[in-house]
C-alpha cells in the first residue's frame, strides 16, 4: 500500500480535507481534491508558471510542492482573487488590454502579478518583465500583460492619490 494520509489545507479562506496519497503535489490536490481547476498544469517540472498560486501571499509553483508540505499555510488560487461574479482591477486590466488569448497561462500570470503589486505597488516596466519572467505565455507576446499590470498599478496609485487628497487636512480656504 502506498503511503497515504489525510491532508488538510486552507485554500481561499476555506478548509479542504482529503485522504490521498502522500506523493500528491499541491497542484494535483488543488485540481483533483479541492476541485479548483483554475490552477493549470503546464509542465509539471517548475518552468512554465501555469500552476502558480500564492502561499501566504507569495507566488509559488504548486507543481514543486507536495500538498502535505503546506498544511500550515494559507493558499490562494485564481478562484480566490475576487468574489464570485466580480473581477479585481487587475483582472479587468487584463481584459481591457487583451492580455490573454487562450487563457491557459492567465491564472498563473494573475497570481504572480497580484503578488508583485502587493509587494511593489509601483513597478517600472523592467520590474514587471522580471517578475513575470517565470511565467510562459505562447499567445500574447507578453506585451499586453505587461501593459495591463502597469496600468493596474497606475490606476491604484491614482486612486490612492485621490483618496489622500480627499482625506488630507485642508490647509487653505475654510480652515482659517
Amino acid at each position: 500500500m502506498n503511503p497515504t494520509r489525510e491532508i488538510t489545507l486552507r485554500v481561499n479562506g476555506n478548509t479542504v480535507r482529503a485522504v490521498c496519497e502522500t506523493r500528491i503535489t499541491l497542484l494535483d490536490f488543488l485540481r483533483d481534491q479541492a476541485g479548483l481547476t483554475g490552477t493549470h498544469a503546464g509542465c509539471e517540472h517548475g518552468v512554465c508558471g501555469a500552476c502558480t498560486v500564492q502561499l501566504d501571499g507569495e507566488s509559488v509553483r504548486s507543481c514543486l510542492l507536495f500538498a502535505a508540505q503546506v498544511s500550515t499555510g494559507e493558499i490562494t488560487t485564481v478562484e480566490g482573487l475576487a468574489p464570485a461574479g466580480s473581477l479585481t482591477d487587475l483582472q479587468r486590466a487584463f481584459r481591457r488590454h487583451h492580455a490573454l488569448q487562450c487563457g491557459f497561462c492567465t491564472p498563473g500570470m494573475l497570481m504572480t502579478a497580484d503578488a508583485l503589486l502587493r509587494e511593489s505597488p509601483n513597478p517600472d516596466e523592467a520590474a514587471v518583465r522580471a517578475a513575470l519572467s517565470g511565467n510562459l505565455c505562447r499567445c500574447t507576446g507578453y506585451q499586453p500583460i505587461i501593459e495591463a499590470v502597469l496600468d493596474c498599478a497606475e490606476s491604484r496609485a491614482e486612486a490612492t492619490l485621490r483618496a489622500d487628497q480627499r482625506h488630507a487636512p485642508t490647509t487653505s480656504g475654510g480652515a482659517a
Binding site: G46, G49, T52, L55, E58, S59, V60, R61, L64, L65, T112, A115, L116, A130, A131, S133, G134
Partner: peptide, 12 residues
C-alpha cells in the same frame, strides 16, 4: 539574488 531563477523559485 535577482539572477537566481524566477521569483516563484526564490520564494521557496
Amino acid at each position: 539574488m535577482p539572477w537566481v531563477a524566477h521569483v516563484q523559485i526564490r520564494n521557496r
